[in-house]
Design a protein around this nucleic acid. Structure first.
Length: 227
DNA sequence: AACGTGACGGTTGAA
DNA sequence: TCTTCAACCGTCACG
């Protein structure tokens, strides 16, 4: 979102709408969903969707074995930009998981103090309902009628989701999330890129204990591909 | 040749 | 239930 009209950086090519056909590869690959596309390296991907977990694992695993990103890219048929991005993220966060896609950024409807209080209530009484929390916030004088999280208590639910296991931003839950995701991906495999890609990459997708890697990028570009 | 990075078209899901 | 919109995705191409 930095490109200003009139001052078009060179990077911003005045493109013919990106169509993934510059390479002469077929635009789409026939899949049960008709979503698969083929990149320049011949790899299959779904535009807009994250690579499957086992490929992400594989990328990190190979990097840990000292395999260079360009080799990983060619071998797994994933663009080097993507390999670079995944490895950078892994280095920064220790997680191979993609970020949370979609949704709006939660509005700051509550002060940190209120959030803390909600956490406290929830810790003391995990079975507490949103509306009960809301009432208690009012009763304890933490909020008044104007400042209490919204009428439907949706915002309270949101806070609770994010604090007590929602989209899994919590690093402590990483293993748990990984497990859940694995199960989930198995369930969805037939209808996702995992299924589309089949077992092309499945062998040795288990992630072993890593030693200090050497093939990780030296630097990272900012994680968010800002627009 | 390898790699960092910005633009792009696309998907997702909370509001 | 539908729409909007900002987050994310991977690819591509440039430097």
């Amino acid at each position: 979102m930095t490109a200003l009209a009139g001052a078009v950086p060179r990077m911003m090519r005045p493109t013919l709408a990106q169509n993934y056909q510059r390479s002469g590869f077929p635009l789409e690959v026939s899949t049960p969903l008709g979503q698969g596309r083929v990149n320049q390296l011949g790899g299959v991907f779904i535009n807009g969707r994250p690579l499957p977990n086992h490929i992400r694992h594989k990328i990190v695993e190979m990097a840990h074995h000292g395999i260079r990103p360009c080799v990983i890219s060619r071998q797994l048929r994933v663009s080097h930009g993507c390999v670079s991005k995944i490895l950078c993220r892994y280095q920064e966060t220790g997680s191979i998981r993609p970020g949370a896609i979609g949704g709006s950024k939660a509005k700051q409807v509550t002060t940190p103090e209120v959030e803390k209080k909600i956490e406290e209530y929830k810790r003391d009484n995990p079975g507490m309902f949103s509306w009960e929390i809301r009432d208690k916030l009012l009763k304890d004088g933490i909020c008044d009628r104007n400042t209490v999280p919204s009428g439907t208590a949706n915002s309270i639910s949101r806070i609770m989701r994010s604090k007590f296991g929602g989209k899994g931003e919590d690093e402590d839950d990483e293993d748990e999330m990984e497990k859940k995701e694995l199960e989930d991906s198995e369930r969805k495999a037939k209808h996702s890129i995992d299924g589309i890609l089949g077992d092309r990459f499945v062998e040795s997708s288990s992630l072993s204990v890593f030693s200090e890697g050497d093939a990780f990028p030296r630097r990272c570009y900012s994680n968010s591909n800002s627009r």
